[in-house]
Simulated assay, not measured.
Amino acid sequence: MTTGRVLLASDLDRTLIYSAPALELTMPDPQAPRLLCVETYERKPLSYMTEEAAALLEDLASRTVFVPATTRTPEQYRRIRLPGPPPRFAVCSNGGRLLIDGHSDPDWRAHVHEQLAACAPLAQVRAHMLRQARPEWLLKERVADDLFAYLVVERALLPDTWVKELADWAGPYGWGISLQGRKIYAVPHPLTKSAAVAEAARRAGTERVHAAGDSLLDADLLQAADLAWRPAHGELADSGWQLPHLRVLPQRGVLAGEQILREMKDAATAQAERPASRR
């Protein structure tokens, strides 16, 4: 049965795929799920899914329009080898890139740059972040795809109020701040996963969007979806973030990724069994 009337959009890191520290395997070792490595970096395994999650994704990707929606740049995204056929659409750079069959769409890129003209320049925001950072907890800083910036920090040494103070400063300039693990992101407000996913849905001709994510950078995507999921970990869980159409899962870590895919499959199958809507 085809479920192609539904577009499934999902964040990757700490939603579908997990580094070793993020797995949260709390069960006895003999009961731990078998894992599949889906990303290698510098010749070392980096990210994993359970084998059951991999089988679910392979099935979903063959029967639906599955769209990875990540803050990763295209270069970082291409390190990941997800099960199933290569997605026709992928959203990278937090919506700054729409990949079609692996290639960045120039029309979408031009549209994004038009939207960002109303925000303060990246160079100004990056310079402010670096002026406010302290060497005792700043590990590195990066600019991603000439669109946004992030810091890698030692969380234990980061002052409790630093992120909020940065967010208060950045907001009037059209930028948002998000803390994810050891990374502090500064992202312009118009740069959203939801906008790029909506464009993918328009081009694919799907009727509904189902989405999953765990961080504040996924909030707009989940809010715009017809049905959404989040795990019991991440920024959204820490803040108790809720929506009427949001399903909050009790699982944490890699088992949450498996459960998200299981529920996505059930929901997409149920949607396919309903009569097609009239247009």
Rank of each mutant, 00 (worst) to 15 (best):
residue 238 D to L: 11
residue 115 Q to Y: 01
residue 125 V to A: 10
residue 144 A to H: 13
residue 279 R to S: 14
residue 237 A to V: 02
residue 90 A to S: 11
residue 34 R to K: 13
residue 78 R to G: 02
residue 181 G to T: 07
residue 160 D to Y: 02
residue 225 A to I: 10
residue 205 G to V: 11
residue 117 A to Y: 00
residue 234 G to Y: 05
residue 117 A to N: 02
residue 178 S to T: 13
residue 148 F to Q: 01
residue 61 A to W: 07
residue 158 L to G: 11
residue 15 T to H: 04
residue 163 V to S: 07
residue 250 P to T: 04
residue 172 P to D: 12
residue 264 M to T: 01
residue 80 I to H: 06
residue 45 P to G: 09
residue 77 Y to A: 01
residue 194 S to H: 11
residue 162 W to N: 02
residue 61 A to L: 05
residue 44 K to M: 14
residue 269 T to Y: 09
residue 245 H to T: 09
residue 205 G to L: 13
residue 124 Q to K: 14
residue 171 G to P: 00
residue 276 A to Y: 01
residue 195 A to H: 01
residue 205 G to S: 11
residue 44 K to T: 14
residue 201 A to K: 04
residue 178 S to Q: 11
residue 204 A to C: 09
residue 67 V to G: 11
residue 38 V to E: 03
residue 156 A to V: 05
residue 67 V to P: 05
residue 5 R to A: 13
residue 165 E to C: 01
residue 278 R to L: 14
residue 195 A to C: 00
residue 186 A to E: 06
residue 113 H to P: 03
residue 156 A to P: 01
residue 72 R to D: 04
residue 151 L to N: 02
residue 173 Y to F: 12
residue 123 A to R: 12
residue 201 A to I: 05
residue 42 E to A: 15
residue 62 S to V: 00
residue 43 R to A: 15
residue 83 P to A: 03
residue 41 Y to R: 14
residue 257 G to Q: 04
residue 60 L to N: 07
residue 163 V to I: 12
residue 231 P to K: 02
residue 235 E to I: 00
residue 248 V to N: 10
residue 274 R to W: 04
residue 108 W to F: 07
residue 20 A to Y: 01
residue 217 L to A: 09
residue 271 Q to K: 06
residue 211 A to C: 12
residue 225 A to F: 08
residue 35 L to K: 06
residue 119 C to D: 00
residue 277 S to T: 12
residue 133 A to Q: 08
residue 119 C to T: 14
residue 75 E to V: 12
